[in-house]
């Protein structure tokens, strides 16, 4: 993201809005400025602030007069008074910053697929995670720290070594020339994104190994890692994994529950696979 110095009036509202604190008032030119190395192109400033179209010279003059009197205009905090954000056309590899950081960008347009897949949210329809399996979402960079792909790679290579299989339909996997090694395209290793989600699926028996691997590597990183563990419940809505997680030092209490109300309704989908996606144990 760029901020147009001809429009900016240095009101400072956008500073607090940036999730990764990459905007500052440059003391030399007295304008809000983006540290492009830290900016993750999430567009939170551009997309989520309201904009006014005031005359920059007028606003600066008023602000200057006020400053002499030691007073400030006390505006709504989420407003850019002069609509000064100027998004830039992003070229590869910087374009992947936006693909991974801005939830509103259509992934296709960036050449990188989705910020995540449907995970467990449609598991009742897709049966991605079946009985005896565990689906992991290992997320890097959130909340509000950001991650470089070099750090993501440290974990993916360690996971590859213990034999975890990466979800194919996932944007991080799409950046791996050879997913069996976990190595990521070297061109993007220094790119910083707000969030990258690695998805792997393993047999239940591999749960402790995956948890230990993520813990050990995470402890060496300069970013934050959050792990989600998805499981298929039995006919009574129970599962063994919840207890196993507590035993591994994760007394879980919050999560996402798929109620199992979805089914195939598209005419052609029903025709193709009659009964194949019916939930087990019903």
């Amino acid at each position: 993201m760029h901020i147009d110095p001809r429009k900016c009036v240095a009101c400072g509202n956008c500073l607090a809005v940036c999730p990764v604190s990459a905007i500052y008032i440059d003391p030399v030119i007295r304008r809000a400025t983006v540290n492009l190395d830290e900016c993750v192109e999430c567009y939170a400033c551009h997309n989520r602030m309201s904009k006014e179209d005031l005359n920059p010279t007028l606003v600066r003059t008023i602000r200057g007069l006020f400053k002499l009197l030691r007073i400030r205009f006390d505006p709504e905090p989420d407003v850019c008074p002069t609509s000064a954000f100027a998004p830039q056309k992003l070229a590869w590899p910087r374009s992947i910053r936006q693909a991974f950081s801005d939830p509103c960008v259509p992934h296709e347009s960036t050449g990188v697929y989705g910020r995540g897949t449907e995970e467990v949210k449609t598991n009742d329809v897709t049966n991605r995670v079946g009985p005896g399996e565990v689906g992991f979402t290992v997320e890097f960079g959130r909340p509000a720290v950001g991650a470089r792909f070099r750090e993501v790679q440290a974990v993916t290579m360690a996971l590859a070594r213990i034999g975890a299989a990466f979800e194919k339909n996932n944007p991080v996997t799409a950046l791996m020339p050879d997913p069996t090694t976990g190595a990521i395209n070297p061109e993007v290793l220094d790119e910083k994104v707000l969030s990258a989600i690695v998805e792997v699926k393993t047999p239940e028996a591999l749960l402790p190994a995956v948890l230990r691997t993520v813990e050990e590597v995470s402890a060496t990183l300069n970013t934050v890692v959050s792990v989600g563990v998805a499981v298929r419940c039995d006919g009574d809505g129970e599962n063994r994994v919840e207890k196993a997680l507590a035993g591994e030092g994760y007394p879980v209490f919050r999560g996402k529950t798929n109620l199992g109300l979805g089914r195939l309704t598209n005419p052609e989908a029903q025709a193709k696979t009659i009964g194949a996606a019916a939930p087990a144990g019903r």
Binding site: F66, I71, R72, F73, D74
Partner: peptide, 9 residues
């Protein structure tokens, strides 16, 4: 000042 949305700084 508050009525004018101005604060002493």
């Amino acid at each position: 000042l508050k009525y004018l949305r101005i604060r002493f700084d």
